Computed example of a mutant assay.
Amino acid sequence: MAGSSFLDVARAAYDTVAVDYAALLKDELSVKPWDRAMLATFAELVLADGSGPVADLGCGPGRITAHLHHLGLDAFGIDLSPGMIAVARAAYPDLRFSEGTITALDLASGSLAGAVAWYSIIHTPPPELPAVFAEFARVLAPGGRLLLAFQVGDERRHLDQAYGHAISLDAWRLSPESVVRQLGEAGLEADARLVREPDAFEKVPQAFIVARRP
């Protein structure tokens, strides 16, 4: 897609795979106790702070949004892919989903008690990440919490096939230290990080960072 932005490329890819992606990953959390633990810890912190709206940024088919809802949070989802949003709305009709991008969120400043970006920053070119983190900081209320998940590394991977479809999409593996530093530069303080080893279906370690807007 010559001339397209990384957002256009990601939107096209996820529109293509939306239905099969949702079916293949529907029960993924059930076999990932460390991932569930990070989501539960995040939810406990937000609830202890008094709760409030929590955005699942890059929500895809809505499975993490629904999990956050089951943990007691007032969760809603945002994704740049209309195909993903359609799947999420069909699967979870009682939850809120809307189209949007993590680079320019249609949310008021300081309006969120929490935000989750569950593997949704991985298609953002690294030079663009500081602006994305600044946007996350903007929409969080003072004391608001952020949870990030991403693959560990320092390289770009190009995907020509995914979830049974031909696509064209770049994904970046990231350094937890670099992400923590950039979060700090955006005004977000990292409270905890977890790096777990890859499971049987993963190739690299997986990172989870919980940060807070002071």
Rank of each mutant, 00 (worst) to 15 (best):
V139H: 12
D74S: 13
P61K: 05
L47M: 09
A48M: 12
H123K: 08
V46A: 08
Y92H: 14
D160G: 15
A131K: 11
A91K: 07
E128V: 09
V152R: 01
F150E: 14
V152I: 10
H70D: 15
E44L: 11
Q161V: 15
L105E: 08
H69N: 13
S51A: 15
P61W: 05
R157N: 10
F97A: 05
D94V: 10
T103Y: 03
A162C: 08
S81Q: 03
E99N: 11
A86V: 05
I121M: 04
G110R: 08
P125N: 12
A141E: 15
P126N: 13
A75K: 01
G77F: 01
A66R: 11
L80N: 01
V87H: 03
G100P: 08
H158W: 09
I121A: 00
T101G: 15
E135R: 02
I78M: 07
V116P: 03
L95W: 06
V152N: 02
G62H: 02
L146E: 04
R157S: 12
I102F: 11
A117F: 12
E128C: 07
A149S: 15
V116K: 03
A104Q: 15
G83Y: 00
A43W: 00
L45F: 08
R138N: 09
A75M: 02
E135W: 11
D106Q: 13
L68V: 10
D79L: 02
A48E: 14
A131D: 15
T65E: 07
R89S: 15
V152A: 00
L147K: 04
L57K: 02
I64D: 04
G143Y: 01
I85T: 08
A37E: 13
V87N: 04
R157Y: 10
A75T: 03
L80D: 04
F42L: 04
L71C: 12
G143T: 02
R145T: 02
L140E: 04
G52N: 10
A90I: 04
F76H: 12
A88I: 01
L39C: 00
R96T: 13
L148P: 03
T101F: 06
G50A: 10
E128Q: 13
S120C: 08
P126M: 06
G143Q: 06
D79Q: 03
P130Q: 09
D74F: 10
V87P: 06
L47C: 08
E155S: 12
D106P: 13
A115E: 07
H67C: 07
H158A: 12
Q161S: 11
F42M: 03
G110E: 12
A88W: 01
F97V: 00
D160A: 12
S81R: 00
A113G: 15
F133C: 08
L45Y: 08
T101M: 06
G100M: 08
Q151R: 10
G83I: 01
L68N: 05
G62V: 06
A162P: 05
S51P: 07
A117I: 01
L68T: 07
I78P: 06
A86C: 04
D94T: 14
L140R: 00
A149M: 08
G52A: 11
V116W: 01
Q151S: 13
E135I: 00
A115S: 10
T65C: 13
L105T: 06
S98N: 07
V54I: 09
M84V: 04
Y92L: 09
V87L: 05
H67M: 05
Y92W: 12
L140W: 01
P125W: 00
L105N: 09
D154H: 13
M84Y: 02
H158T: 14
L73M: 06
H70P: 05
